[in-house]
Design a protein around this nucleic acid. Sequence first.
DNA 1: TCGCAATATGACAGATTGTCATGTATTATA
DNA 2: TATAATACATGACAATCTGTCATATTGCGA
Lengths: 208, 208
Amino acid sequence: MPTATFFRLPEEKRKRLIDACWSELTRVRFTDVSINRIITQAHIPRGSFYQYFSDKEDLIRYLLEDLQEYFVSLLRGILVETRGDLFAMPLMAYDHFIGHQGRTDPMLSLFIKLLHLNQGMDLQSFMGGPKHFLPDPLWETVDPAKLRQNSRAYADQVFHLACAVLAFAVVETFQDPTQTAQVREMTKMRTDLLRYGGAPEGYKEGTL
Amino acid sequence: MPTATFFRLPEEKRKRLIDACWSELTRVRFTDVSINRIITQAHIPRGSFYQYFSDKEDLIRYLLEDLQEYFVSLLRGILVETRGDLFAMPLMAYDHFIGHQGRTDPMLSLFIKLLHLNQGMDLQSFMGGPKHFLPDPLWETVDPAKLRQNSRAYADQVFHLACAVLAFAVVETFQDPTQTAQVREMTKMRTDLLRYGGAPEGYKEGTL
DNA sequence: TCGCAATATGACAGATTGTCATGTATTATA
DNA sequence: TATAATACATGACAATCTGTCATATTGCGA
């Protein structure tokens, strides 16, 4: 977490720093992010940076919080569109990402770039708070009647897997954009798998 | 890929180097692996290291190949036990990992330590070759009659998700070992989800 | 024995990180 | 207002890394 000092910073200075951070974060992988380059670009002395953040990880965690908030609101909109159907979410989100929006919405393209650079960076844990995976604003829009079990715990599990599917699809697509159609197909297959299960219809354990 | 020179190295020297690598790899995260420490411990001059590997990533990739091979053989055994049931695999593998084996089998405990240090490091992509996720030796042992669709492509998807479930379970457990029982419960929930689907029984799209 | 090719080696340049002692501004207080 | 206390700024510095390269050494065929 940034220090109190950071939040007391004059608007202009803070913006300069944050902008430089994003510029670095969207240029290289987390591993290769250089505080040196950031402070140079932002014209912030070295010592000052460490007055605000304890280290690189601290910085990145802070920046991702913003993104997370945005991402949740995005998914919320999508969930509403699907009328609370968690299983329909990945494909709809995927189309949203890949389609027009992904190029025009600056926040979203930022997000995609990060996902791309960091090879999927585990959307699930990125989203998840300590106990629940499914953030409150999303849980509110879920229609439990569309789930086999109505508990939130169950919705958590579904959501977690759905996010994994989504993240993988995005990464795959940006690794090889010519394969978009196949990736979409694969994503459909996976969400169906989550929805209907991978066992044959009428399968009971121990039957075969 | 290591250079040809590396493979021509005298047995003893190569072992010294590899041992030092593993010792480092199981001590700190990939990000923090230091070539400096490795060569110091192995008593290999700096220049020599770069004669063998192009950089850190090259080294790590090489070491993981070994692990991958081992891991596949492990999973193969487990799949045979489950009589080719991909959905039963994660839970059985989990018990295998957490139980006695995980402590005694040196290769396995190595593997677990890596998983722990690197927060799940994406078992899926770690496993996956270019086209198929499901390696041949595993595909051979899968019983397609236990899948909704018999294609290998379908088995790939199931396998990929099953691995995600497994990896997450292992990471969770080592983050907080007191929660083992809950994690196991969660893993059961997830594999059931994969097997039977998360939609209510008899659910058809557009019904509600 | 000569000479070429493969290896070995460690000094070096370039970069990065986190700390800290020393300033400077701001605010509270007598 | 004068003074003390606190908060903040700053850049030099030590410690660490990494990748390269010129030079030495070894092995081996002619």
